[in-house]
Design a protein around this nucleic acid. Structure first.
Lengths: 225, 225
DNA sequence: CCAAAAGTGTTCCGTCTACACCCATGG
DNA sequence: CCATGGGTGTAGACGGAACACTTTTGG
């Protein structure tokens, strides 16, 4: 605080969290009614202001933790949004972060306490300010990256069936995938391990449960799907 | 200025420009010696603070214009950088933008006036603060996008030879490309038009000059190379 | 016994890759 | 006349896309 840049003006900086989940074969987003002015009552992403003693990433993680009670979530910066009048109250520049969580990890009581809901991305209402634009950009980012980065596992439980995994891809890419071709590609990827466990909940016959092996992936960080 | 967010603190926000050019078959970056404290004299990207009356994009364009005298340049946001101590002076959050320009469009007198130089990206010195990280991220972004977006033309004159275009791809991707295969793919792209003009400067035989047809591309915005 | 989801291979076609020689011209 | 960069085609390998039937078992 030695005053190097005194002649310039400061602005409010916030972070907004675009929280994706996967439920009922749909890609969903966590949104709630804004609880403060301006814009009270409008549908909105969950966000917060950046404090002096934290970096942008730390701010995003703090906000995300206060919302979900979860730490070490998968998170990526979507970008900074800085139109002059994007916030109807005062000038606020915001940095959007996108997070992927497994809906089962999210305590539903906590969700209700924060007054947020899972809404399917193709049924999104008009959101506060430029939040719809942020979501669009985040979805584009997901689509681009899902085939070259192992993102999808963050939306699923530790153990998952191949059908579930396929449905994640279908939800994000917005198109149907041939089951046989999909499974053929999965078989070629050795960090997606078949476990001894069987899921008997979704089918009578039962489906093998698979696991994403982080360590194996670290050794062989190429990925195509 | 109605004071909605009064209890929160404000920070300085700046923009930094990662200006790429293509010269002598190399991808180059425009950097200069920092002319103010802290960090005076260190190699640095060109940047500036965001004013109250301008958006982030406007700020980036203003800074870029003051540096180059050029407008309507191709520009993409690279991301926001917000480590607490990233700037040794005070807390400054910065948003990096990457621009592609044709070096011939840049008045060399203006370049010298600003004390900036074209430096090959594989000979970059240590830059001020986290600027090296920004450059890395920008290069990654270019690499990712060059095969799905018509970026390369921004680094070339309006009219260019296929050899020049190939060299841009080679410089960005960092690998050699087979001439025949490259030209075969170009032929399949109808918005890269052959003109009647011949370039006689770089070869005795002369090479056909091509043009990127924006209008055609707009009608058919798919792209693979 | 039947509905519902799991699981499994082959063929075909288009795309990418490797590869070498002739052409036109200025000096 | 020769050095320099421009320009061209083909064959083989590979990877992606299309496609249908059998298995298991809970109810």
């Amino acid at each position: 605080m030695t005053g190097f840049y005194g002649e310039h003006s400061k602005v409010f900086v916030s972070v907004d969290c675009i929280v994706f989940g996967f439920d009922n074969d749909k890609l969903k987003l966590l949104i709630g009614r804004r609880q403060m002015d301006p814009g009270r009552g409008e549908w909105s992403l969950y966000g917060g202001f950046v404090r002096e003693d934290e970096s942008l990433v730390e701010a995003a993680n703090r906000v995300l933790f206060s919302l979900t009670g979860l730490e070490n979530l998968y998170m990526k910066q979507v970008g900074a949004f800085g139109a002059i009048d994007r916030d109807p109250g005062e000038r606020v520049i915001t940095v959007a972060y996108c997070a992927l969580i497994n809906v089962n990890d999210y305590d539903d009581r906590l969700r209700v306490e924060h007054g947020v809901e899972w809404v399917s991305i193709d049924e999104l209402p008009k959101l506060y300010s430029d939040h719809n634009e942020m979501v669009r950009k985040a979805v584009t980012l997901l689509r681009r990256r899902i085939s070259t980065e192992p993102l999808s596992f963050n939306l699923l439980p530790e153990l998952f069936t191949l059908t579930q995994l396929q449905h994640v891809y279908e939800a994000i890419l917005g198109e149907q995938i041939d089951k046989r071709n999909f499974r053929k590609r999965i078989k070629a990827i050795d960090f997606i391990e078949k476990t001894e466990y069987i899921d008997k909940l979704t089918s009578k016959r039962g489906a093998s449960l698979y696991r994403f092996n982080k360590e194996m992936f670290a050794n062989e960080p190429s990925f195509k799907l």
